[in-house]
Nucleic acid binder design. Structure first.
Lengths: 352, 352
DNA sequence: TTCAAACCATGATAAAAGTCAGTTTTAAAG
DNA sequence: CTTTAAAACTGACTTTTATCATGGTTTGAA
């Protein structure tokens, strides 16, 4: 019988939920605030913790933070229970290292399925872990992750889903992240601001790309902001789980290095462009980047604002628009409403 | 008794060398050109191959290339024997994956010590390899590479030494490299050219830095040129050895990823600077980069040409010089001959 | 359908940085 | 110690691009 620790200040909600869970074959421990919750977690080591965010004494964020610093408790799946439906609050919780979240009001099904799915995932990870520790081969060959593709499948199977609308911010500069993401749908830009508030896009990720895979051993803050540039669904795996995975699957690490090296090479290319390219060249390169790398089909129209395009190219928006106007006159691109359609790809590539 | 395959077209030199090696307890096979050499290598699988570069029928480069494509022979240590003392020829050989080289004329000691040291290194690697395959722990704990520091020590112990004078080119764009380097002395810049021949420095490495660690699984060509910016000594480990090493020492891989992520972050920083920074800002940032990252002591004078500085900043040389002149007038830096000395570090950091 | 906000486009102007040509300084070789 | 070539510097001029201002379009919500 699995033990659930429920931390919730509202006594009515706490008792009702506890009762409901007890009927579903769980053993329940309850705590009225974070402080008590931390004590109980350390004492009883439950199998999963469900914790409210807004509480007196010690809130959910603080609770998680304390528990994740203790080796005895940092592996217990942690699920937030939150009345705050605002995305950024959930985000904050997940960034602190929570495994899932349930928004109030919730149904019986909501909470039970959340708990069950988390316990199931924890069990699988634990099994992998034990197999490795004992020096046994992994029980099921399909669980072995050899290629980047296997890794992506792992995200599909075990990742937590996050949804963002266009222009939602995924993380801010200076945020500490505890997740690695696979983009299941949509696209993401990573950007930085300079002192004058000018924005520069330093990376673009599309469907099926991994991102935020920078630091695994130290928890350094982000140096850029990530924003959804379309309605986006991410699958996230916590860094803790991820590094464990890497420790057990060495081959894929080399592929990850490759991925990083590719990124590095791309950024250096962009650097060379921005340093010495003319405006026309930068504009052409930027359109090509979107047409070839971000769009799923090469001849789909480019649905990105002039502003974003300019901040990838590293030039003023008006300057980019002038270059676009020139390209239109030359018959290289054409406008479809606000979108841009590439007419003559080859000529675009030879712009100097 | 170890077997040495000696491939050399000059019959006098071949016979003399063979005799000399036979007296030193080696079994010798000889071949008069690369074509025969390849056949003999595949047939007899010697413990080490010593091969001349300039030969009729098939030269040393071709010989190495063929042998390194065959699984049976690609692990045999390969030592070039070359009359060409020119660095670039040696370079070409090493980049193809040779393990060492001896330049003619050589003494008895030269060749014997080269062969012995290569055989010794091969034996150690083989031992590590066997231990791993059999699932045994590594025999000696000191051989286990856990941290980046251990990795650097490995380069010190087993790396092949290469020497470059200031402005020597280490590799060219489009070269295929088979080495990972640790800088034992000196400094290296990596740079790219744009179509107009303008140079942009995309990375700087100093003493004790690793570089050229981009791709391990596929042999993609370099996308930048690497040049020594001072007299430089490199310690190189072949990619084959290196990946083997990584397969046996997983922990250090995560640190390598970290290193790459740091690089990426640096380049992005440079990108932001170049995109929207003013000339003064770029100049200040470049000086700081050299003062803080490349110089061993922060207040050593910066001994880099204005040209190189400008190509790190991504601006015209004259423009950089004007900015320097301004800084001198403001008392932020001063000139010591051609070198630059930072007088007021704090003010340099606040330049806008 | 209407309306406002956000976005796109263009002209005029100012500022910044690159280019070219020529002079001075530096450092390395004889 | 001289010589000399390369590097550093300066000035005049040109080009490029950002900025500011303004009017036209598109889009999505009321």
């Amino acid at each position: 019988m699995k033990t659930v620790l429920l931390v919730e200040d509202d006594s009515v909600l706490r008792e009702n939920t506890a009762e409901l869970l007890e009927l579903s074959k769980y053993k329940i421990l309850t705590a009225a605030n974070g402080k008590i919750g931390v004590e109980m977690a350390k004492k009883h080591i439950p199998d999963i913790i469900v914790c409210d965010i807004m509480m007196p004494e010690l809130d959910g964020y603080g609770t998680l933070e304390i528990l994740s610093k203790d080796k005895k408790t940092n592996r217990i799946p942690f699920v937030f229970l939150s009345a705050k439906t605002e995305r950024q609050d959930v985000r904050k919780g997940m960034n602190l290292g929570a495994d899932d979240y349930i928004t109030k009001p919730f149904t019986e099904d909501d909470i039970i399925s959340a708990i069950e799915s988390r316990l199931a995932k924890a069990a699988i990870l634990e099994e992998l872990n034990q197999a490795h520790k004992n020096g046994f081969a992994l029980t099921q060959e399909k669980d072995e992750i050899k290629t980047l593709n296997d890794l992506k499948n792992f995200f599909d199977d075990y990742g937590t889903e996050f949804n963002y609308k266009k222009d939602d911010i995924i993380y801010y500069e200076r945020d500490h992240s505890n997740y690695i993401y696979l983009i299941s749908k949509g696209a993401v830009k990573c950007h930085r601001m300079d002192e004058q508030g000018k924005e520069l896009v330093t990376a673009l990720y599309k469907e099926d790309d991994l991102f935020d895979y920078t630091s695994f051993t130290t928890n350094i803050p982000h140096q850029e902001t990530a924003t959804a540039i379309a309605d986006t669904t991410l699958l996230g795996v916590s860094i803790l789980e991820f590094t464990e995975l890497l420790n057990k699957n060495h081959k894929v690490v080399l592929e990850l290095i490759e991925l990083l090296a590719d990124n590095l090479s791309d950024v250096k290319e962009q650097l060379l462009q921005i340093a010495y390219g003319t405006v026309n060249k930068k504009t052409a390169a930027t359109i090509l980047k979107f047409a070839e790398k971000i769009n799923r089909k090469p001849d789909d129209p480019i649905k990105i604002s002039r502003n974003d395009l300019a901040s990838v190219a590293g030039i003023a928006t008006e300057t980019l628009i002038r270059a676009l106007t020139e390209f239109k006159k030359l018959g290289i691109i054409k406008a479809e409403g606000r979108n841009i359609k590439v007419v003559d790809l080859e000529r675009l590539k030879t712009i100097t």
